[in-house]
Design a protein around this nucleic acid. Structure first.
Lengths: 232, 232
DNA sequence: GCGACCTAGATTGCATGCAATCCAGACCGC
DNA sequence: GCGGTCTGGATTGCATGCAATCTAGGTCGC
């Protein structure tokens, strides 16, 4: 992490994910380098890396832009996540330890307690829920014990909208998500790979449906692009 | 392609795939740059790109080496290919045109005609078969119409041993492979996504079994490392 | 004789200069 | 007035110099 290249990469990634950089924004090498107090070389490396992960698109001799997501992109990405995370759940079911299952159960339970739609949090405060959810999925992928799978999923990009996603969840959809989590835990504890895979696929495809509906309602794709906005 | 960076990338990739660079070989920036008549900058870019695709491993401050494949790597990679190419076949079944199906049928038929185990070629001449097979799979992925899926599969790396793989196929395994190809064509022509997906998964998993058996027999992992060897 | 430390060489990582490419605007011809 | 061309500015892509880091060998101490 002390490497400048990694710092630039992390900064750009965070900036894109939390909306500091809006869709289509130009990422000039000189500009970014000046902002982060480094030279163009590490910036170039970070941009190529982000490009291979799909977060930015790099055009030859024309620089990099923050990737714009179409409905089809969302659909394809979540279809891939459905089969890949399903595979991860199936693999995990065959080898996961009781300790890890307990951790997952705890995460699933905690997610309910921080769900704003259930009155445990101020309405709209989905930050903790999103973080717990990300960890839940990461633990399962880790329990699958496949570096290749983990790397492939990591390359599939956390959507820039992750946090905003939950805003479009109806209370019913959130309840279904919680139910899926608990069911996945049960399937893993039972060591039932086919069950775990099936529920995980349903879980991701349900998320896809919410996301697509949400995206469809976004007539004005206005990203919050406060140029000087600072987030932790 | 006129870009130096792309030329270096292509040269290194080809060199690794055809065995000119052996497993574990060190890829020093200066050395590669001198070999290809360029400077270190494009070499660095190419190495990072190959690293993100899994063909080489880059250690911080310690340079890049050609990735060594373990049995588990093979297993994980083919497990991923099985689900991803299965997904591709399912998607393709829903939208493929008759022309593309005809092309696939022609490829499947031609593969039989160039199969050395059937006496149509000198024994051991699997080059054409491998090329046709690669094209067959590429056409299906293309027909799936998902850029994300295509990119993910491309990142999953053509194994360095692709060509040598066929050498370990028994005539029965080759016959099964041909049968799978024809069955996939039939499933696509019928527009039956579930069928196409299932056969494709079987096809890839069968290849995995052959590869793992082959890898197990490789007591001496001697890669043909003729340092000055030139292939096409 | 064996092990730890220390130094020298080599290599990666970063910064910066120069050439090639691309985009914008104005100018000219029709 | 409109379209094509040409030039200027800016940006990317490549080459190279310098500093930081790592590996290897030798030396010193025990």
């Amino acid at each position: 992490m002390s490497q400048a290249s990694d710092r630039v990469y992390a900064a750009l990634r965070a900036g894109i994910l939390d909306g500091r950089y809006g869709f289509g924004d130009r990422l000039g090498e000189i500009e970014v380098a000046a902002d982060l107090g480094t030279s163009r070389t590490p910036v170039r490396e970070a941009l190529r890396r982000l490009g291979s992960e799909g977060l930015v698109e790099v055009l030859p001799n024309r620089g990099a832009r923050v990737r714009t997501w179409t409905a089809q992109d969302l659909e394809e990405t979540y279809e891939l996540r459905a089969v890949l995370e399903g595979l991860g759940a199936r693999r995990a079911a065959g080898q996961v330890t009781a300790e890890v299952v307990d951790e997952l159960a705890a995460l699933a339970a905690e997610m309910v307690t921080v769900d704003p739609s259930l009155g445990h949090r101020p309405p709209g405060d989905f930050a903790d829920l999103a973080a717990l959810n990300a960890r839940f999925h990461a633990v399962i992928v880790g329990a699958a014990g496949s570096d290749r799978l983990a790397a492939t999923l990591a390359g599939l990009v956390q959507l820039p909208l992750v946090m905003r996603t939950y805003h479009r969840y109806t209370p019913a959809a959130l309840a279904r998500s919680h139910a899926h989590h608990h069911e996945i835990v049960d399937a893993l504890r039972a060591g039932d790979g086919a069950w775990a895979e099936s529920v995980m696929r349903s879980h991701v495809l349900a998320a896809r449906a919410v996301l697509l509906a949400s995206h469809r309602d976004d007539a004005s794709g206005s990203a919050a692009t406060d140029p000087e906005g600072q987030a932790s």
